[in-house]
Nucleic acid binder design. Structure first.
Lengths: 183, 183, 183, 183
DNA sequence: TATGAATGAGCCTTCATTCAT
DNA sequence: GATGAATGAAGGCTCATTCAT
């Protein structure tokens, strides 16, 4: 059984790498199977269809990104901490975000994938929402909560593909929030 | 010759629509040729390879987006005006941005495309740079110029796929810049 | 051991139904195993190869059709009785004859199957032969024995796939034999 | 253009032979293409799908069988003539009937094919119907028209696979009709 | 006996591209 | 410029069978 799980993981990882390096265009099952050292038909024992494998890759990616936002900090510090963590992740493991981008793009066409992607974002969105609301209450800032949530998400999605500027961008964003009320 | 140009344009437009609707996965030449009313092998008289056609689509997209930033406004108003214009475009012609996203993702793999995409962004980047610098000088704000440029670009890239929140996000971003110095 | 026999029977029955419904094209072992509630590889413990299972289906079918022709009747009545019995069977259990047809077709290609099918027919052929000979002797009719045997067999094979006309056809055939000598 | 038609015909003939020899089980496109001396992918220029090729084979077969029944004969002679012609064809070109049988079997599962097969039979059925009716009127015999039509069809279908007995069987059938009224 | 993993041959189909006409 | 035939590589998937457990 450990064998089965191991091989499954190997396939997921191989698929992940392939998508990170070459995207979905040109994503083919045969090389994935070869990477895992098995025949391409054996791959279908683990994943009945290509879509099933891709779904597993999505799960793999989101499980890696499950960041728990700290709750023992002031809103401003919490925001900075959170954004720094993501910026760091973008720098350290850019492939994760590259694949996430491919998945996002795919979600626009594949309803099943859209549901999964959407679900994963909801937790994040809720945490950010709470953060901005708390900041408003504590007068750390005075902002439109929903718009700010989307601003942060958009910015992070926008820098995903640019690890070199990630740190500077998130710092600037934090500074803007910290420096004033935007009423 | 006008015929030649017309048919070329028809092919580009058909390719553009196909990419907007189905992405590069599943982007096939035969249907494109059919859309333009010609045989699929005739398409190769206009574009030698699939990549050539895609390059033409990129050119088509960026030519549509060439926005001249106004120079007769105060920095803050100019920023707001510029962001509003882009947000409006995202709402009115979302396909343009969807394709841009596909192209961005592709640029990571195709050096030729990367060069083109980069080049198109440089003009934009320079204009934003001037804008923030001027704002600093006029004490409209006090920000890190480069980081702010990237922040704006990242945000806009991040909202490209979400027309429904575009307007709110850019307004929030402007408010943050307008409301304070982030020193 | 009863278990073994039971499961074997279940497999044969499942295979029989599959062939009756979908023919040999599309006859696959996995669904058969699934129908019997076992793994597809376990099926090979009962039948080493696909052909072995098919042979068992043939045996199953012919065992169901083993009709004993009555000997206590006049030739004409005996013929009528026999044909009626078969026509009734065609109406009541058409699948049996559908499968028989598939098997017949297959026998043309598979020598092993050809032998089995032929063997099953010999008993029938002999009984019909005796019947027509007796009819000639008793002047119930005056026909070419061999040709008549084949005529009956051909007719019955020909109506196998058409249960709705079976009864009328055999009645017409009996009437022809009864009504005259065809010398 | 002649080339195109020729190659098309070559493919149809190759498919016909393959079905005659090995049936639909094991009917594969690659060998067909090879028989016609072309790449298997080129075959799809002529027939988009496997089914399309099979449909063409059906058409080929029925066009070969289009037998016009003579109208310048007495019913009994006409019947004999018709049955002899078919029996002769079964002897001379048994493959035609083998393929027909495969097609018949397939028609039971494929509605499209069923329609085509049925259509071809209707002409034949009508001609036989007229023949028996005329025979009744002229007192050549006195039989149930519909049942007799089906009897002839069933018999002929039943001997299709047995060229060696075909002639004797049809003669016996004619004799029965000729010898008496079956009322 | 039963399983599930593995295999390898093979299937139909697709596609970008080339080439003669 | 336009066509249609041809190609060959590849692609996702299937299936009977084998084998270690």
């Amino acid at each position: 059984m450990a064998d089965h799980v191991d091989r499954r993981q190997a396939l997921i990882r191989a698929a992940f790498s392939a998508i990170a390096e070459r995207g979905f265009e040109g994503f083919r099952l045969r090389p994935i199977a070869a990477s895992a050292g098995i025949d391409h038909s054996t791959l279908h024992h683990y994943f009945a269809t290509k879509e099933d494998l891709i779904a597993a890759v999505l799960e793999h990616v989101t499980s890696q990104l499950e960041g728990t936002m700290r709750t023992d900090m002031e809103p401003a510090a919490r925001l900075r901490h959170h954004l720094d963590a993501i910026a760091a992740a973008i720098v350290e493991r850019p492939e994760l975000f590259v694949v996430l981008d491919e998945l996002d793009l795919r979600a626009r066409r594949d309803p099943t994938m859209a549901v999964d992607v959407r679900r994963d974002e909801q937790g994040w969105r809720a945490a950010l929402s709470a953060l901005f609301e708390e900041g408003n209450e504590q007068r750390a800032w005075s902002v439109d909560v929903d718009a700010s949530v989307e601003l942060v998400i958009a910015t992070l999605k926008g820098i995903r593909l640019h690890p070199d500027t990630a740190a500077a961008v998130v710092r600037q964003l934090c500074d803007l929030f910290s420096s004033g009320d935007a009423s």
